[in-house]
Design a binder for these strands. Structure first.
Length: 817
RNA sequence: GCCGAAGUGGCGGAAUGGCAGACGCGGCGGUCUCAAACACCGCUGGGCUCAAACCCAUGUGGGUUCGAAUCCCACCUUCGGCACCA
């Protein structure tokens, strides 16, 4: 132990990585009596290198997994690769690479870098979503959802990304642009495959029994956008017959104020109600609307425009004749694509009515509004109904219910709930994804591929020319198959599945990753699921994190998993910024390369420095010069083990008691920090304790027992964040391999308690003096000591003490006149 | 506009009703050294031209409280999300 060699991360890190791998130290056995803990970090898309953001995420997740392992849990902490997706295919288009080979190379690189960072994954459970053994089951899931009516094919307005040459789900459109390529998305009417996400919309709002950040829950809740209202039917005369124009409204109580109707330019009724005189204007408006991008059309700054169709509807409540307009502020994709416009009580309708000189009829009274005069703006709240026939005088609080009840009683409409969220569009016109296991037969329409024929393998030797159609359509020998029902000529579905489907169930596959018979066994699912702790970026709030909840609920209803939610606790790490406080990007030149930092200081130092930046959920700027402090600390910890210490045996000495108190306090605080992912303060407490130990050592002989306790505790508490140096020091301190399966140190509250406490003396809330009192001192003792303090006495001159406020062991406030 | 998070030294941050600025970086001074450092020690919010004492200070303005960075109200700023959703 006297070997005073210096801390050299490059000597010890590869050594222990090899040892851990050879020993399968981090394997999670299925047959283990300890309580289970499923720690999951979102798996990466394997592109290029593990970047600093990956390190930031996985350093924290790994530290928590290690902490739980030391707490005595049988920790399942797996890793895999979300390997289907566009970058591989784009590399194929650009450089002629084979997507499978390109992906394989990247995965190997990622795996190497994961090992270099000293992560504690159970690699025996690795899954790769582009592997046929995995996507066989992704296809299987599709068939199960199809069989349960949760997958269907339909024509709808879809988001088309011209850059990616495929449709996208709504969740993948951010501000009118493609989430991946940033191209402006176009709207196309296409027949596509969907998952019936809306079937679970209400349950997805519940978040039953899970601890997820408020931010994510709010984003999902807003995205789902539940609104209660009513569906009302307005009769319309079309070609001599009466049809119903259905509108969704959250304000059925304003129906008497409906002075016109607005339907989306794409609404199916437009052609049939347009009168010959309005035909040219309507056609021109529709043409113009169709040419707009989603971004242009979504702009709220834009002045509202529209055209009268010449058609009229009848208000079913009062028989009023109501003109029907088309306008692009009404979206064909929401509600029924048609609204009743109530200018008096809806600002958008008010603006439209003002522009086109349409009437506004107030149907509520309002204390601040004179409704007998023309309105300056719409007002949404009111006191009681007015201008509403038999409903006049109805208080606002009862208005909606009464109007809705009337509609239902008369067959005019009914109360309903509408959602902003739409079904999940899952088909993609791309190659590098799991083929949708369906066959189109001229005789039998759509026929599922029999489960025994799975997987439907991706063909090789494909030409990757972006045509707007899946490259699979060009491969005749793949496309042409016999119909599973009658063996007649049929064609495969050529679209592939959205890669978010692969990641919707991967946490299930980890529990039984090599099962050739089923996606996973019930027994193992029951043992390991759900995930106890999940971590990943908040950018997946309404994509992956919503989809996997939907998927789980469907799986639950199939009897495959138990419980209502897939991940009990979620933690979102923040975004690590460049040293300049800006988002890291090549163009800004502020990218921190992990390999460089590791080459300079080692993986342990880099991990610690990343976690020392600030609270993990907050992210923040990376400080490369701050690395010096971490490196200094690691050297100090090293020297505590390797430098000479003079020992005595004096367990009752003040020095021994002080050291033990510091050790036990540190254990208490570090444990709390580890539970709550507060790695920055965890490190600062360990730094403080290392410095204290060093001072104790340099001050003279220390008690052998107290020193050994302090040293072992320090090494154990370093292990989650700095696994290599901890393992090395653990061995050098004469302990048994491995520190990473050693029990986390426990603290003794009696030993952590202070013998003396410093009590702050305040006069009228201002600090005037401090006292050192025995920990067991009473309030009376504190008062007596305070009154004896000369400093306090000065401030009491000529004053009368009115009150004493005493916070035991902390503070005494004297309130004076 | 709506929803969410946040504003504290030169910098990252700590303290969530009780000593504001832990820990670290940077800076200043010193020790060791031929010289240095990833070594060690000390100082480091502002004012009062040393110090002590005192005063001021946690985005701004009010309030609650014996006591507020922390709770409440109003406002300003920044970041993230949604955005004509009827």
């Amino acid at each position: 132990m006297i070997v005073a060699d210096r801390y050299d991360p490059h000597a010890i890190e590869p050594k222990w990585q090899a040892r851990w791998e050879a020993d399968k130290l981090y394997r999670a056995p299925d047959d283990d009596p300890r309580p289970k803990w499923y720690e999951l970090a979102m798996f990466p898309y394997p592109s290029g290198d593990l970047h600093t953001g990956h390190w930031y995420h996985y350093s924290g997740a790994d530290a928590h997994a290690r902490y739980m392992r030391m707490q005595g849990y049988n920790v399942l902490y797996p890793m895999g690769f979300d390997a289907f997706g566009l970058p591989a295919e784009n590399a194929a288009i650009k450089h002629g690479a084979d997507p499978a080979a390109w992906t394989k190379t990247n995965i190997e690189n990622f795996r190497r870098q994961f090992k270099m960072m000293g992560s504690s994954f159970d690699w025996d459970r690795e899954v790769v979503t582009s592997d046929p053994d995995y996507y066989k089951w992704t296809q299987w899931w599709f068939l199960q959802l199809y069989n349960r009516g949760l997958a269907y094919r339909a024509a709808a307005a879809a988001n088309w990304c011209p850059g990616c040459q495929t449709v996208l789900a709504n969740e993948q459109v951010v501000g009118g642009r493609c989430e991946r390529s940033d191209d402006v998305v176009e709207r196309r009417f296409l027949t596509q495959w969907f998952f019936r996400l809306t079937a679970y919309a209400d349950e997805l709002l519940e978040f039953k029994g899970i601890e997820w950040p408020e931010r994510i829950r709010a984003m999902q809740t807003n995205w789902i956008g539940r609104s209660e209202g009513a569906l009302l039917r307005f009769p319309v005369e079309v070609d001599g017959a009466v049809e119903q124009l259905a509108v969704f409204t959250t304000r059925p109580d304003t129906v008497y104020g409906a002075t016109f109707m607005v339907i989306a330019p794409e609404h199916a009724l437009v052609d049939r109600i347009t009168t010959p005189g309005q035909r040219d204007a309507v056609d021109a408006y529709r043409e113009a609307a169709s040419r707009q991008t989603e971004i242009e059309r979504m702009s709220t700054e834009k002045e509202k425009t529209g055209v009268f169709t010449g058609g009229y509807a009848t208000n079913p409540f009062n028989g009023a004749r109501v003109p029907i307009w088309i306008a692009d502020y009404v979206l064909v994709t929401y509600g029924t694509g048609a609204i009743m416009a109530v200018p008096a009580h809806d600002q958008r309708d008010f603006e439209f009515a003002t522009k086109y000189a349409l009437d506004a009829i107030p149907v509520f009274t309002h204390p601040d509004v004179d409704i007998t005069r023309p309105l300056a703006a719409a007002f949404s709240d009111g006191l009681a109904m007015v201008n509403s026939g038999p409903f006049d005088g109805t208080p606002a609080a009862e208005a909606k219910a009464r109007v809705t009840a009337h509609a239902e009683a008369n067959g005019i409409g009914e109360g309903t709930v509408n959602y902003r969220v739409r079904d999940w569009l899952i088909s993609r016109q791309r190659y590098w994804g799991a083929p949708i296991p369906m066959i189109h037969c001229p005789e039998h329409a759509i026929v599922p591929v029999p489960e025994s024929d799975l997987p439907v393998r991706l063909p090789e030797n494909v030409t990757f020319e972006p045509t707007g159609q899946s490259p699979l359509t060009l491969i005749d020998e793949w496309v042409n198959v016999p119909c599973p029902i009658d063996g007649g000529p049929a064609r495969r579905e050529t679209d592939t599945l959205d890669t978010f489907m692969c990641s919707s169930w991967y946490q299930m596959r980890y529990v039984d990753p090599h099962n050739p018979e089923r996606p996973f066994s019930q027994a193992l699912a029951h043992k390991w699921l759900p995930v106890d702790q999940y971590s990943g970026g908040a950018d997946h709030a309404v994509m992956h994190l919503l989809y996997t909840r939907f998927f789980w609920k469907a799986a639950r209803d199939m009897g495959l998993v138990e419980g209502d939610e897939p991940m009990l606790r979620l933690f979102n790490q923040g975004t690590l910024l460049g040293p300049d406080g800006q988002k890291m990007s090549k163009s800004r030149g502020n990218v921190v390369a992990p390999d460089g930092e590791v080459a300079k200081h080692g993986a342990d130092a880099f991990r610690c420095q990343l976690m020392f930046v600030g609270p993990w959920d907050q992210g923040g700027p990376y400080n490369p010069t701050g690395m010096a402090g971490i490196v200094r600390w690691l050297h100090r910890a090293w020297s505590l083990v390797t430098d000479h210490v003079s020992f005595v045996t004096a367990p009752d000495s003040e020095g021994a008691r002080d050291l033990r108190r510091a050790t036990h306090k540190t254990i208490r605080e570090v444990s709390e920090d580890a539970e709550q992912f507060r790695f920055n303060t965890l490190i600062s407490r360990l730094m403080e304790h290392s410095s204290l130990m060093q001072r104790a050592r340099d001050a003279g002989a220390v008690d052998r027992g107290a020193w050994k306790e302090a040293l072992d505790a320090t090494i154990l508490m370093m292990a989650p964040l700095a696994p290599h140096i901890a393992e090395e020091l653990w061995a050098r301190a004469g302990n048994r391999y491995s520190v990473h399966v050693a029990p986390w140190p426990s603290f003794d509250p009696a030993l952590a308690r202070d013998e003396q406490v410093e009590v702050v003396l305040q006069v009228n809330g201002k600090v005037r003096d401090r006292l050192l009192l025995p920990a067991e001192a009473t309030e009376a003792d504190a008062r007596e000591a305070a009154l004896a303090s000369p400093r306090v006495q000065e401030w009491l001159q000529g004053k009368e003490i009115r009150r004493f406020i005493y916070v035991p062991g902390k503070l005494l406030n004297l309130v004076v006149s």
